[in-house]
Design a protein around this nucleic acid. Sequence first.
DNA 1: CTGAAAGCGCTTACAG
DNA 2: CTGAAAGCGCTTACAG
Lengths: 334, 334
Amino acid sequence: MKRLSIKDIAQQANVSITTVSFIFNGKAKEKAISAAVIEKVEKIIKESGYKPNQIARSLRTGNTKIIGLIIEDISNPFFASIARLIEDKAYRKGYKIIYSSTENDPDKAKDLIEMLRSRNVDAYIIAPTMGITDTVKLLLNDDKPIIFFDRNLPDLDVPFVGVNHLEASAGAVKTFLEQEKKNIAFVTVDLDVLQIEERLSGYRNALEEAGRDYQDELVIKVPFKQGEPETIDQIKTLLGNKNIDAILFSTNYLAISGLKAIRELNIRIGEDLSIIAYDDRDIFSLHTPMISAIEQPLEEIAENVINLALNALSGKDKNMNEQVILPARLIMRE
Amino acid sequence: MKRLSIKDIAQQANVSITTVSFIFNGKAKEKAISAAVIEKVEKIIKESGYKPNQIARSLRTGNTKIIGLIIEDISNPFFASIARLIEDKAYRKGYKIIYSSTENDPDKAKDLIEMLRSRNVDAYIIAPTMGITDTVKLLLNDDKPIIFFDRNLPDLDVPFVGVNHLEASAGAVKTFLEQEKKNIAFVTVDLDVLQIEERLSGYRNALEEAGRDYQDELVIKVPFKQGEPETIDQIKTLLGNKNIDAILFSTNYLAISGLKAIRELNIRIGEDLSIIAYDDRDIFSLHTPMISAIEQPLEEIAENVINLALNALSGKDKNMNEQVILPARLIMRE
DNA sequence: CTGAAAGCGCTTACAG
DNA sequence: CTGAAAGCGCTTACAG
């Protein structure tokens, strides 16, 4: 069945499509349409259930009331939670979200940006991967708001919302040092993204500040694309090599793989080994014993991101370049 | 900066926009465009980075290469995993996903459907809430593919992919009965959706088959909108009332709240109490002791959903009304 | 107070 | 082998 168009409504009401458009868009008063006509047309609109074709409207007006959201992986709870919060806040302002996962593949990321661009989204919210700097530079020419979050691209002047990972990760290591841990390991992922590098730098800085040597054997960088069994094996090898008595995990899924490795090796957390995970999750507070964690302020991140986007969209903040760096929180559970 | 349009390319190449369109869309051969022109135009397209405006294209062709996905809540790992798998498979076929969460609010669901409709999505994948039957009926008039998953609306002839919850939940109860459990509780949510009701029916059936009475005091229905602390309290009250020695949880987040309640009450799982959770998650296998779970086949669900959608889109399967019911798997960890 | 017409950027049937 | 023109469904400046 054919969908109703503005022409159908105009015909039924015996008025022009101009009049229908004015009435539908609440400009009837402003355009001084007579009360009788307004009533007649509104009745027909209501009874017929007419909804304007947004595609046509977008083509004409140039905007879509859609915000594009590009993240690493929607099945990662960190991103899923943020996505949900952003969606929620956007929805209340009449914006919809198109999201897509890049899987840290720059080609897919470029592809997605192009897709969003060709669909005329009004704004972009991106957790950028490395290697898309040029694509984003071109995108900036469109004069549509772009907000980065979680990770940043250093060469670009784009508003950014992130977390102070340097401090968070150094704080975790300091806690280990206070507990007089001897061999503090760091398990991270081999991604060249800023926020992951900062977590490593924080680890390193805290050790060096305490006069400890940074030891390569205590740090592993797990390949991003690797399956979980391989990761577990890698962590088991790490734990076998040295007398490790503390581990900081740089992501939540690495911590989970770590817990599986530890369980397989029958190591007792708390006695033989202390661990701190990145990104708090139920799993850590329900674990026996409970696992300490660095919690990123999801709600605040989402709030800041969407506010920056909406402000830019409403034109309040055209030439902004805000860098919002939020503190993480270390939750000790020992 | 203005985006390049087909007109710009045509001007630069000194040809008509028709020619550019044919070449861009790979119809050059078919339309017998000369090799020289093809080369010239392709060069300009490449150098300029021209991408057609999909909004205009959609208005003209009527399709968008976008599939709308409506779920309950993207931050629920069950939906996030499915969404990711669907996105992945759709992407490979050139389709994008617009997703939105209904929070089980029929009004929001209707709103979202209307939004997707007015944006001309090519197909709808919906985990329906109750109360949207009429909206979906209207939607069926558009002759665009609609696929339901996870839950179904009984009055509608719509292809559906789901899990046999009746059997899964009865199987869990039977396992408890074999373990000679005396008071088997069931913790569920107060949603009027089919798959939740089936979980309750499965519980009830298995008990009755074994000649046991169904006892109201052993079943709680937690309000969907309720905060977690209240849910934990409710479960604590349940556990205080009766000599409950087994609990089946009808969703993963209820099981997590349950674990928190159990922990607060210092009840020992395994000795005093056995539990089975719905939807397997890392948290259950890493818990001490490990928690048994009913695992839904996420990959298969996503696979079936996207295949139904793509088949319908490619016109292979116009008048289909397939009901795919997949078995869940009980993973015992005791 | 209301409408005819241009135009958003494409695709495609038709003409030559 | 190539192009002029219609039309997708809207919005809006302009005319009356």
